[in-house]
């Protein structure tokens, strides 16, 4: 494990904690896309099917369980918690996320490392994660104003992706066996989706003003 990978995992965890904190403290999920959160829950459930078949490390198993549990907790809050549920604006969150699920699964059927149940679901989760942020970005763009915690949530998620790319470069240079084209290419696509958001996030930070996305 290198420093970029660890920092990437930590910012990923931090992003989820920021979101949970926001929902818990304000009892509101305004500005949060339920669809993106459901896609992430599907991503983790599909990718970590290997929890039952492979053991890599205590750290790995622990983090997998944390990611599955926290993503399900967020979806539960938005769908079931009476106060949080009321703040959900489904008219803003209209992205047709099932299309992303269908397209990712189709792609996984054709592009995978091995034609097995686990490998297809693993590839599916990689493709779906790459695009899962789209409903959230569209929602933010629609509502224009982004509250601080939601902005930080997306910022930490983007930072996690950027750090994973550094991690791959590091591993590519230091580990002779390191080849994982599916994850790396999808990861670069995913990070590119954040570029626009990062640009406006940086501008607002530089001007010390509230984050606003152009319509």
């Amino acid at each position: 494990m290198n420093i970029f990978r660890l920092a990437g995992d930590m910012t990923h965890l931090l992003s989820i904690l920021v979101l949970l904190l926001k929902i818990y403290a304000t009892k509101s999920c305004s500005g949060v896309s339920r669809k993106t959160q459901e896609l992430y829950a599907i991503v983790f459930l599909a990718r970590y099917l290997d929890l039952f078949t492979d053991f890599i490390s205590v750290y790995n198993t622990f983090m997998k369980i944390v990611f599955i549990a926290s993503s399900l907790a967020i979806v539960w809050c938005i769908r079931v918690h009476p106060m949080v549920k009321r703040s959900y604006d489904k008219d803003l969150d209209t992205f047709r996320h099932y299309l992303l699920v269908a397209a990712s699964f189709l792609l996984a059927l054709f592009l995978h490392e091995k034609f097995t149940f686990l490998e297809i679901f693993w590839a599916f989760s990689i493709y779906l994660e790459a695009v899962a942020i789209l409903p959230q970005l569209v929602l933010l763009q629609r509502s224009g104003n982004v509250d601080n915690l939601t902005g930080q949530y997306v910022f930490f998620l983007g930072a996690y992706r950027g750090l994973y790319i550094l991690n791959w470069i590091y591993r590519y240079l230091t580990e002779p066996r390191f080849t994982r084209w599916i994850a790396c290419v999808s990861g670069v696509v995913q990070t590119a989706l954040y570029a626009d958001f990062f640009y406006y996030y940086f501008i607002s930070w530089k001007n010390n003003s509230k984050l606003k996305l152009p319509a």
């Binding site: 492979d54 890599i56 790995n60 997998k64 080849t179």
Partner: peptide, 10 residues
């Protein structure tokens, strides 16, 4: 094997 080696990330 190679496949497992490729799955050590989260």
């Amino acid at each position: 094997d190679e496949l497992n080696y490729n799955k050590d990330e989260l």
